[in-house]
Design a protein around this nucleic acid. Structure first.
Length: 462
DNA sequence: GCATGATCATGC
DNA sequence: GCATGATCATGC
């Protein structure tokens, strides 16, 4: 049977793939042949391979189109405000064979042979919809820009070295910047042998971080113009230093200096009354314009937080995240939740000690939440969901009109708690279930916070 | 002094 | 008007 494209020719494959734009699988495949059991995660890709490109799915070490050297990947999108697309999740690539990778160099690695050139098919995910009806929005081929590839090589090397040190069971997605080692398997208990340790390691695959996939999407759609400022000016720097070394080195000249001194040395002018004064100061230290996002941090999903430390060594304030929408929170599952995504991202903490009317730069640290603390944060998320779902937010209306809630407070959990995060108490968002005590259909915006005591013990003092 | 509810300054 | 990155205010 002849195919509607030439599987040995890259351009032919890409041109055929682009006919998918704006269509659904139902429109481009012979749906009568597709069995009903193909509804779950991952089946979009299988149907695409088998019924659109008409080849049998394989899981070998060759790319999907071996002669054209092109790997096919499909992945879900979500929409943001301003109708821009974002990746719904990380992009999962090949499974890491712990036994083989330790004998490979990047250039001859399974990862690079398979993924040097990727044909991307992004579809808009809609909750509870049939996967045959997802609309395909973006189709294009992708190869890595040189500067990105250097960081991906460093990430790959880091993962390989950890396996070579007998620590495959300690791999974590937070170890690296653009290329991660994410868990992959039918259950999270799927394990594989590792070469230098008896302990079985969780099965993992290489994956592009969600932030990096967002960047791919934006650059395919030409949506990146002028939004970003780069940390790394040229490729040469990356040949000798890793991204974290480059970042941390930028702070070296400023240890134990006051904010005023740093401002003078940098020759800049900052509004000291702004609440994000220290965030702006940090951006200036990093050499990024205040009105730009830090490109490398966006790609790596790094959250920058500046911390004020009291003279006695306590952290002045807890750390807030964006307020959540009650209606969205209750439809989430933990694995895909915004909160899990946030706390599993990499953080860059910058500590300033409060001295009289000034701040003194003290410490800077990359950090990921330890694996064992994530279930603790999950308790807060689950508790919050239950409170919202059962309409039991307000516990008591105080004489002064303030409301006490049933949300989990700082004393109830070591890691995290739930607090207001709004313009004022009238700044509300709808509830999925009316509050039983107040009968209200909306409530002040709240968010998850990291406890300052947790940050002190876990980040500042370590 | 701390925990919690409430709010602020800025920029778009 | 809202998101972001925070700090303030008050009762215990």
């Amino acid at each position: 049977m002849s195919l509607p494209y030439n599987p040995e020719n890259k351009e032919s494959i890409i041109q055929y793939a682009k006919t998918l734009r704006g269509k659904t699988l139902r429109q481009v495949c012979d749906v009568d042949l597709i069995k009903n059991n193909r509804k779950g995660k991952g089946h979009f890709g299988q149907i695409l391979e088998e019924f659109f490109f008409q080849y049998k799915p394989n899981s070998g070490s060759e790319p999907d189109f071996p002669i054209a050297k092109l790997e096919l990947k499909s992945s879900p999108l979500k929409t943001l405000k301003h109708s821009k697309f974002q990746s719904k999740e990380r992009l999962v690539l090949n499974i890491i064979n712990y036994l083989e990778i330790v004998n490979q160099d990047f250039e001859n690695s399974t990862f690079w042979k398979k993924n040097a050139h990727i044909l991307l098919v992004f579809y808009l995910h809609v909750q509870d919809a049939d996967i045959l009806d997802y609309i395909i929005k973006i189709v294009d081929d992708w190869s890595f820009p040189k500067a990105d590839l250097e960081i991906i090589k460093q990430d790959w090397e880091f993962i390989k070295q950890k396996i070579a040190s007998g620590k495959a069971h300690e791999l974590s997605e937070g170890d690296t910047f653009y290329l991660g080692a994410c868990t992959k398997g039918a259950t999270s208990t799927t394990t594989r042998k590792q070469p230098f340790n008896e302990i079985p390691a969780k099965q993992r695959a290489f994956s592009l971080k969600q932030g990096y996939v967002n960047h791919i999407i934006a650059s395919i759609s030409n949506g990146n113009d002028g939004i970003y400022g780069k940390l790394i000016p040229n490729l040469a720097v990356l040949k000798t230093k890793s991204l974290d070394e480059i970042v941390l080195e930028k702070f070296v000249p400023y240890y134990n200096k006051t904010a005023n001194q740093i401002i003078d040395e940098l020759g800049i002018n900052l509004n000291k009354n702004a609440k994000h004064f220290l965030a702006n100061l940090t951006k200036s230290i990093l050499g990024v314009a205040l009105d730009k996002e830090i490109e490398e941090f966006e790609k790596a999903g790094i959250t920058l937080k500046t911390i004020r430390v009291n003279k006695k060594g306590s952290i002045k304030e807890c750390i807030s995240f964006s307020s959540f929408k009650y209606t969205e929170l209750v439809t989430e599952i933990w694995e895909d939740s915004d909160f899990k995504n946030t706390i599993e991202s990499k953080f860059l903490f910058v500590f300033f000690e409060i001295q009289d009317n000034n701040y003194v730069f003290q410490k800077v640290k990359f950090w990921n939440m330890p694996h064992d603390d994530i279930p603790e944060a999950k308790k807060v998320w689950e508790h919050t969901r239950n409170i919202v779902n059962s309409g039991n937010i307000v516990k008591e209306i105080m004489p002064d009109g303030k409301k006490a809630t049933n949300f989990m407070g700082k004393t109830q959990n070591r890691v995290s708690h739930v607090r207001p995060h709004a313009q004022n108490s009238a700044d509300t968002t709808p509830l999925p279930v009316a509050d039983k005590l107040t009968k209200a259909n909306e409530y002040t915006k709240y968010s998850f916070w990291l406890n300052n005591t947790y940050i002190k013990d876990e980040v500042y003092l370590k």
